[in-house]
């Protein structure tokens, strides 16, 4: 770990002001950042702790949205999301499992963690380029992307992003210039060059909140998430799927959004799987149909063809959860 300056502002204005400095990074729960520092993957000039910025924490209704402060701990998010019926979010967050991560980790930090790609973490860079070629296609790519067209093959590491994206959530991004809102999936971009970031944030911009349309509002949806991972305890997912649907009085799906996680450099909004659900009753057959439609166009690498199947199974099972919910309702 290299030496760095440390700031602990007490207001958002102050924080945004300090974050303008070159080489400054925000520090939330630190569960990922400290690992990156210790492994010398990043070497920031300054860390700006957000722990004392009170405005950034908490979950509350604000008009037609649920406002989730970026510094809300994951454990608190689980409780609130459960009460508010944001099932896809609750379920996705619960799969994070480790009590330590849930207590210390925050919503903003979870969304802004860096890819777990082992080439990136070994210091080969986000694109893992050597001699003008990515090391990933001919390397060990068992956990890499099956969707997207390169040159980035890492997968988006967030567990929350697919769930929030399925629910149509936006992140509130702030800087000294003001605030803007972007869809969760647009918080991320696919870097084309090594000097590009996987986030669409400009210098000095900070994720300060997430806004989720309230499920009981006019566009209210039911939602679910399903995750496949090797171990029962703390582990990275191999693939996830989050599904949000609205249904009419006959239980026929009128709108559906399916978002896959851990299959592409961004949360993967799966239009095909979503379309497969529209006009269908929520049942096992619709689940199978959505599963079969998911991850179409996938181009697996040499060692990750199995992930196509996992993405499909996760989609099917996420829909099955909704079908089961309809049955018991």
């Amino acid at each position: 770990m290299r030496a760095f300056a440390y700031a602990r502002p007490t207001s958002l204005e102050e924080a945004l002001d300090v974050l303008k400095r070159p080489g400054a990074l925000p520090l939330a729960g630190g569960t990922d950042l400290t690992t990156l520092l210790k492994d010398e993957v990043i070497e920031p000039e300054m860390l700006v702790s957000l722990a004392d910025v009170a405005d950034l924490r908490g979950v509350e209704h604000r008009g037609s949205v649920v406002h989730i402060g970026a510094m809300t701990p994951l454990a608190e998010l689980i409780e609130s999301a459960d009460e508010l019926g944001l099932d896809a979010v609750t379920q996705a967050a619960r799969e994070i499992r480790a009590p330590q991560m849930l207590s210390v980790g925050t919503v903003g930090g979870e969304l802004c963690q860096r890819p777990r790609c082992w080439y990136f973490r070994s210091g080969f860079g986000l694109l893992a380029m050597q001699g003008g070629r990515s090391m990933v296609p001919e390397g060990d790519n068992r956990y890499h992307a099956i969707l997207g067209s390169g040159p980035a093959y890492f997968v988006n590491p967030s567990s929350l992003a697919p769930a929030l994206s399925a629910l149509g959530a936006r992140v509130v991004v702030a800087s000294t210039q003001g605030e803007r809102r972007v869809l969760i999936e647009d918080l991320y971009q696919v870097p084309l060059r090594e000097d590009q970031s996987e986030f669409s944030l400009a210098d000095g911009e900070l994720v300060v909140a997430v806004e989720v349309p309230t499920p009981d509002g006019p566009s209210g949806a039911v939602s679910s998430s399903y995750e496949v991972r090797p171990r029962t305890t703390l582990d990275w997912p191999l693939a996830t799927a989050s599904v949000a649907v609205t249904t009419d009085s006959a239980n026929v799906v009128t709108r559906a959004k399916v978002v896959l996680g851990h299959v592409a450099p961004r949360p993967w909004v799966d239009l095909g799987a979503g379309e497969a659900l529209v006009g269908r009753e929520l049942d096992a057959s619709a689940a199978a149909g959505a599963g079969a439609a998911a991850a179409s166009g996938a181009k697996p690498l040499s060692k990750n063809a199995y992930k196509v199947r996992l993405a499909q199974v996760a989609t099917k099972r996420a829909v099955l959860k909704l079908a089961a919910r309809e049955e018991t309702a």
Binding site: R116, W118, Y119, R121, S122, G139, D140, Y143, P230, R231
Partner: peptide, 20 residues
């Protein structure tokens, strides 16, 4: 091991998984 660099890719406790 990575065929290109010859280095271990999971010399950690994240992707070298122990049974919990």
């Amino acid at each position: 091991a990575d065929p290109h660099s010859g280095r271990l890719l999971n010399a950690d406790m994240e992707f070298y998984r122990l049974a919990g």
